[in-house]
Design a protein around this nucleic acid. Structure first.
Lengths: 171, 171
DNA sequence: TAAAGCATGTAAGAGGTTACATGATTGG
DNA sequence: CCAATCATGTAACCTCTTACATGCTTTA
């Protein structure tokens, strides 16, 4: 996961660890720690996916290798397992630009469909929870309702992204 | 985290492991695995926070003890550290009914304020990312914008909850 | 010249998951 | 009677965090 994100950021240009941490944080959904970042760089270097070149001062600038590009492409295109976390999807989305339009749409639609079926289940659970006999705690009901609305918002956001893909494709 | 959630569910009535897993899943935000659930029950039992009584068939029904209630109350009332995860907040919220109204409002408002300052940072980062010179990837922009809108929605949801607390207080 | 931020790194541990193993109970 | 679901449990592992340790560089 982290290794994938690091490769993705290095696809654009070489960066050093500190900078990678910051860049990832700025994406908004993942504030990774140094205790996570540096071991990741070590792993990737050992695998031959990235190469270090000493930069200014203490800095170690890392660049992606050909092997690294291949690994990245494979990870990006691999179809996600059913349990893909929100974060895993967000990371993929952040690097979606490296994929051809056709595959982008596929990934967006798969995500959309997964959320859709989640939503269906959530709706059923909620209907059940609302039956008077269960008298579910009001905070739990609030939580469930809010989760439902959030998922609905996510779905229409994805619909928007798909629509925009199709527009740019025909344009 | 999980231990806390388990205690919370057992505050209402005794349950067995399988049932606890299901109940947690129905809350919508946490599908915990058995490999996580059973060790949790083991830990809590060892600490004296819960007690097992064999029920129907293979079932082991767990009930919360006095010590367990004390632990639960302490965890629920403890003010959250700055890095409280979304899930940690959601779990607290699920059990907010066990707290007096005054503390409920405090927790909701603290959460609201934390999200508010997060939103401020996110907004600044976004403005920065949109400057033409940076020409940020469009998918990353979409991600950041969506995250912002989600946070805004969360904040107004919390505002609604606080307002409803105040209404019931004066009623 | 001191504080704040830049920069790299390791060790220990928290907190989960997956895969495996076992077996009872219920419904078509 | 067979499949699905109920039910409990362990071992290996994964991924990330916290806390610690170190030292450079910029700026008020």
């Amino acid at each position: 996961m982290l290794d994938f994100a690091v490769l993705g950021l290095l696809m654009e240009r070489p960066r050093h660890g500190y900078e990678l941490k910051r860049a990832l944080g700025e994406l908004g959904f993942w504030r990774v720690s140094f205790g996570s970042m540096y071991p990741s760089l070590r792993r990737l270097e050992k695998r031959g996916a990235i190469e270090a070149t000493t930069g200014t001062g203490r800095r170690k600038s890392y660049a992606i290798t050909e092997a690294g590009r291949a690994t990245f492409a494979a990870l990006l295109a691999a179809d996600p397992d059913a349990n893909e976390t929100d974060r895993a999807f967000q990371v993929r989305l952040a690097f979606l630009g490296h994929l051809p339009q056709e595959q982008r749409v596929k990934i967006l639609e798969e995500r959309r469909n997964r959320l859709s079926s989640q939503l269906k289940t959530a709706r059923e659970t909620l209907v059940d929870a609302r039956t008077a006999s269960k008298n579910t705690d009001r905070y739990r009901l609030a939580l469930m309702e809010h989760a439902m609305r959030s998922t609905e918002a996510d779905i229409s956001w994805l619909d928007g992204l798909v629509a925009s893909e199709r527009r740019t494709a025909t344009a």
